[in-house]
Nucleic acid binder design. Structure first.
Length: 349
DNA sequence: AGCATTTGACCTCA
DNA sequence: TGAGGTCAAATGCT
């Protein structure tokens, strides 16, 4: 990440970097809590394996803090992220306070044709951010795309897949950053209300959630775990549908733990690998994940899932795969905090 | 056949 | 009046 003091790096790029760093930092806080709660300290703090992993993590967090401070924040979005230390994580809680209520209450007159529009969120505060990936743990369905004036890239419009079955009002707009098309300006409107209480929360996930909750108590930079509850709901929903068992997720989570928390100093890599492994085995077919541009968005990368003009099955961000859902939550626990936020760790290629 | 995406039309608000 | 947001028919993939 090369950034100079001359300011020759696009503000948005810096913003994205800061954003990522903040997320990584938050992820570390959570990891630390998880480690503590699971007694992983014991494993990694043996005399021969170096300092306790929590110490390593503390040191790493300090480095991150320094880096974030050095960057001083890029654009407004990044600044907001840094200041808030969280994104709209808690569904239905204060974390989403900024979101504008999508004004979908209208029933525009039928008749003559399609469309028309109430401008949900227009003029109202919305939750905006810059992310390198469109994946945010939620399943979105694209319902429109529009070329925006003075913008090189089209804006894509998404609504929560559960809008119809659960009346979830969440919506989001994505648009490649002008200066850095690989990053996206994502604006959320409305909060997720979708969930499926009928499913069971994987124990491992619950554990992680609990751990993170503990961390949250110690670090006010952490998101409320109401989000976890929400995310779990989503996961549950998918799991219920696909009949996936929680064993896979649980197993992988614990299996990867050793590597992840080793003091080898390759934690990041390991985390990445773990995530990838989980994703892979989870059968994730996401489209948003990875933010691979593609489709006609002109590099928008939005959803690509189903593929092309149709896509049977494919979904916006996450497939309706149970495991994927689990993954979504796991990543959420380890790196993502449900709701509209993005993962702490982006798994972009 | 079912479903998600595409895309042009239509509507609302500033 | 036009930019932005949404609808829904058309399209195409699984």
């Amino acid at each position: 990440m090369a950034f100079s003091s001359e300011g020759d790096v696009p503000a948005e790029t810096v913003a994205a970097a800061v954003n990522d760093l903040v997320e990584v930092q938050e992820g570390f806080v959570r990891m630390r809590g998880w480690v503590l709660s699971r007694d992983l300290q014991v494993q990694s703090s043996s005399p021969s394996s170096g300092p306790p992993c929590t110490e390593l993590m503390d040191a790493m967090m300090n480095k991150l803090s320094s880096a974030i401070s050095a960057l001083g924040g890029g654009c407004d979005v990044a600044m907001e992220a840094q200041a808030a230390g969280r994104w709209d994580l808690a569904a239905g809680t204060s974390a989403v306070r900024q979101m504008g209520e999508s004004s979908t209450g209208r029933r525009r007159r039928r008749g003559g044709g399609r469309g028309g529009g109430s401008r949900s969120g227009r003029g109202r505060p919305s939750n905006k951010r810059v992310a390198t990936t469109l994946e945010d743990g939620h399943v979105w369905r694209k319902y429109g795309q529009k070329d925006i004036l003075n913008s090189s890239y089209p804006r894509s419009y998404y609504r929560c897949t559960h809008m119809l079955d659960q009346g979830c009002p969440a919506k989001r707009q994505t648009q490649p950053c002008q200066s850095d098309p690989s990053s996206f300006d994502i604006t959320y409107h409305g909060e997720h209300t979708c969930r499926d209480p009928s499913t069971i929360i994987p124990t491992a996930i619950a554990d992680v959630a609990g751990a993170a909750r503990d961390v949250g108590a110690a670090a006010d930079n952490i998101i409320s775990f109401a989000a976890a509850g929400y995310a779990t709901g989503g996961v549950a929903s998918r799991m219920g549908r696909e009949g996936t068992t929680t064993s896979t997720a649980t197993h992988q989570l614990s299996g990867g733990g050793d590597d992840v928390f080793s003091s080898s100093g390759e934690a990041f890599m390991q985390w990445d690998e773990l995530a990838v492994a989980v994703v892979g085995s989870a059968g994730m077919t996401s489209s948003t994940v990875g933010s691979a541009p593609g489709e006609n968005d002109g590099g928008n990368g939005d959803t690509a899932a189903g593929g092309g003009g149709g896509g049977g099955g494919g979904e916006g961000s996450f497939p309706s795969s149970p495991s994927a859902g689990s993954l979504g939550f796991m990543v959420g626990s380890l790196g993502t905090i449900g709701d509209e936020d993005d993962s702490f760790f982006s798994f972009d290629p």
